[in-house]
Design a protein around this nucleic acid. Structure first.
Length: 117
DNA sequence: ATTCTGACTTGGG
DNA sequence: CCCCAAGCCAGAA
């Protein structure tokens, strides 16, 4: 039988689905960090794998990948140049401003439910 | 199995 | 504030 636990590998279909699910929860006008997404997906310290998952994200998906930034609140540099500007543009369209190329996390950081239970 | 690489994070200087 | 080093995990060669 297979594993009983929920999140297996971050890049596996199941793990990616989890990551995408969390990213979809990021509200418009807010941003989340890779580590944050990983933790919320139940995979702490898989920040990099989150990046991989987003990289493998097919075009046209409903996942707001552009709302994911690194811990510095900056758009992570990609392998190919140009995409960073695309992400910045998308964020600005949602009302997120990037003064000096960085998002003011203190202002736009997404705060998931404090688990009001 | 080993080595390199990567859309990361945190800590120290 | 910026730069560097170490820690971290998984996929590809």
């Amino acid at each position: 039988m297979k594993r009983a636990d929920g999140a297996g590998r971050a890049t596996d279909e199941r793990g990616r689905a989890r990551i995408y699910a969390v990213v979809r929860r990021v509200p418009r006008g807010k941003v989340a960090t890779y580590g944050q997404i990983a933790a919320l997906a139940g995979m702490p310290r898989h920040a990099r794998q989150v990046g991989y998952a987003l990289h493998a994200l097919p075009p046209g998906s409903d996942v707001p990948w552009h709302r994911v930034v690194n811990a510095r609140g900056e758009v992570s540099p990609r392998s190919a140049p140009g995409w960073e500007d695309v992400q910045r543009d998308l964020l600005e369209q949602e009302g997120v401003e990037l003064p000096r190329g960085r998002v003011d996390l203190a202002r736009h950081a997404w705060r998931p439910r404090p688990r009001t239970r």
